[in-house]
Simulated scan of single mutants.
Amino acid sequence: MAGPDNIIDVFLQPGDYFVGDAGFRVSTLLGSCVSITLWQPQLRIGAMSHFLLPARAPGGADDGDLDGRYGEEALALMLDELARLGVRGGACEAKIFGGGNMFARRRCDGGGVGRQNGETARRLLADLAIPVRSQCLFGDGHRQIVFELASGDVWSRQIPAAHGVPPWPGVRA
């Protein structure tokens, strides 16, 4: 849907990813899930994921296709699509968001799935030498994320678990 500024808004559901140019604004809601944004500043082309788990379980169902629900595969899907547009992953800058604890009263040994997702995102980007310019990870509650592909700005608003919604604006990362 195009907004008043003729920017097309895209909302990512869990397991989705998106690659596009300056004509798009991408948003999502994250709990323990994580979003990686990639942005190439000269071309103003970017990508954003919304993954649920770091990787497939060993021995899990695999039909041979990459699946955006898993961090390793979501990043591979974004990099493949960016390459088709002539963008190398190493020419991008990354930002990482999410990995929240959705149950503030429960503490998980090892940090739970949110921490695993965030640490996986960090490791994957480090392994590919993609610089992480900003990150907003962990803590309690969920986040609203808005990625402006024209500028590379990502807005993040964290809502604590079991609390009302704080007034916008969020924090620009």
Rank of each mutant, 00 (worst) to 15 (best):
L85E: 13
L85M: 15
G86D: 12
G86I: 11
G86Q: 04
G86R: 00
V87W: 03
V87A: 05
R88S: 14
R88W: 12
R88E: 14
G89A: 06
G89M: 04
G90I: 12
G90H: 11
G90V: 13
G90L: 10
A91R: 10
A91I: 09
A91P: 13
C92N: 00
C92A: 02
E93M: 12
A94L: 06
K95I: 06
K95E: 07
I96H: 03
I96W: 06
F97E: 08
G98M: 08
G98V: 00
G99V: 00
G99L: 08
N101P: 02
M102G: 12
F103R: 04
F103K: 03
F103A: 05
A104Q: 07
A104G: 12
A104R: 11
R105D: 14
R106S: 11
R106N: 14
R107Q: 15
C108I: 14
D109A: 15
D109G: 14
D109K: 15
G111W: 05
G111I: 01
G112A: 08
G112D: 10
V113E: 15
R115F: 11
Q116T: 09
Q116M: 12
N117K: 09
G118L: 08
E119N: 10
E119G: 02
E119S: 04
T120H: 11
T120Q: 12
T120V: 05
A121P: 11
A121W: 09
A121I: 04
A121T: 03
R123H: 11
L125I: 08
L125F: 04
L125W: 02
L125V: 08
L128D: 08
I130A: 00
I130M: 02
P131A: 00
P131W: 00
P131G: 01
V132A: 01
R133I: 04
R133D: 10
S134W: 14
S134E: 14
Q135F: 08
Q135C: 09
Q135E: 14
C136N: 12
C136Y: 10
F138G: 01
F138Q: 06
G139Q: 06
G139Y: 06
D140K: 02
D140L: 06
R143G: 00
R143N: 07
Q144E: 10
I145H: 03
I145F: 03
V146R: 15
V146T: 13
F147H: 04
E148K: 05
E148M: 09
E148A: 14
L149Y: 04
L149Q: 05
A150S: 11
G152A: 01
G152M: 01
D153W: 07
R157V: 10
Q158R: 15
Q158N: 08
I159V: 14
P160W: 05
H163Q: 13
G164T: 05
V165W: 07
P166C: 02
P167T: 05
P167C: 05
W168C: 05
P169E: 09
V171F: 01
